[in-house]
């Protein structure tokens, strides 16, 4: 398998359009993702995030535009694209009837790797699933299932990983676990494209954030750059209440440090900014 180029974008998306009948889901989407970075695609439900991920992972053809993944065109070189990526879809794509270990062995065999059993055991250990390895995945909690799902995506070390709403439906602890997994991934050099509807998730994880709204990218930048867009956020004095998440995590004894506070300010600053104009 080709190694990821150290410089240059791992993903290039230019003018991607996609419609379903009368519904113009994507209306010309452009962005780049640098190799080895975490890129968050932020958008509300129905913004077209999943459609875009499906196009980039060769499950859908775009109506117009060009997308390259690891240098390969999704339209003309889908096989090379599939060699370069792993998709973790919105719903945990694990086989519930098989055990966690069997799931991993299955994917390792389908990737034609040697020693699928060893690979499975290593991943089980890495994702703290060794004990649960011989249980049916259907008995796993939401967080365990997600961890298994993501570990299945890592088999064969694809340079690029798509995570479509990886924490939707997870409880706060499981969410923090998944966040840690994603950080570890990026630290090991994998390029991560993450979609999310949670602002704090993008804020915590992403090197760059793009906001997909009504079929186009309306903003794309680092967290700092995006925050700079909001005028006069600091002149507002807002009584800061702890979020329910802070309370919950404190009560159940989890480390709440990862839960960011800033988006509470940012959210209140938006209407304030508009008023001051």
């Amino acid at each position: 398998m080709d190694t990821t180029p150290i410089f240059g974008p791992a993903l290039q998306v230019r003018g991607i359009e996609k419609s379903f009948k009368d519904l113009h889901v994507l209306q010309g989407v452009d962005f780049d993702v640098q190799a080895g970075s975490i890129f968050a695609l932020l958008g509300s439900n129905g913004a077209g995030k999943t459609t875009l991920v499906r196009i980039l992972s060769t499950l859908l053809s775009p109506d117009a535009g060009i997308a390259t993944v690891n240098g390969f065109d999704v339209a003309t070189e889908p096989k090379d694209v599939r060699e370069s990526i792993s998709l973790t879809g919105q719903f945990a794509a694990v086989d519930e009837v098989l055990t966690g270990r069997e799931n991993l062995v299955l994917i390792a065999k389908l990737r034609h790797l040697k020693h699928p059993g060893t690979i499975a055991d290593e991943l089980l250990a890495r994702f703290s699933l060794t004990e649960a390895g011989n249980r049916k995945a259907g008995t796993y909690s939401g967080g365990m299932r997600r961890r298994l799902d993501i570990s299945m995506s890592l088999i064969g070390n694809p340079p690029i990983i798509f995570l479509d709403e990886p924490t939707t439906g997870l409880d706060p602890q499981a969410r923090l676990e998944v966040w840690q997994t994603i950080k570890d991934l990026a630290n090991s050099g994998t390029t991560v494209l993450l979609t999310t509807q949670y602002l704090d998730e993008a804020e915590t994880l992403a090197d760059r954030i793009a906001i997909l709204h009504k079929g186009v990218i309306i903003q794309n930048g680092t967290l700092k750059e995006l925050k700079a867009l909001l005028p006069a956020a600091e002149v507002e004095y807002v009584e800061k209440q702890p979020s329910l998440e802070d309370v919950f995590l404190t009560l159940v004894g989890e480390d709440a440090a990862a839960a960011p506070d800033e988006n509470t300010d940012a959210a209140t600053a938006v209407p304030a900014g508009k008023e001051s104009r």
Binding site: T58, K79, I85, S86, G89, A93, D95, I107, L110
Partner: peptide, 14 residues
Amino acid sequence: MQGGIFDRFASMPI
């Protein structure tokens, strides 16, 4: 297809 494993297979080089 519902569970997503179908999509996983389809996005793999198999």
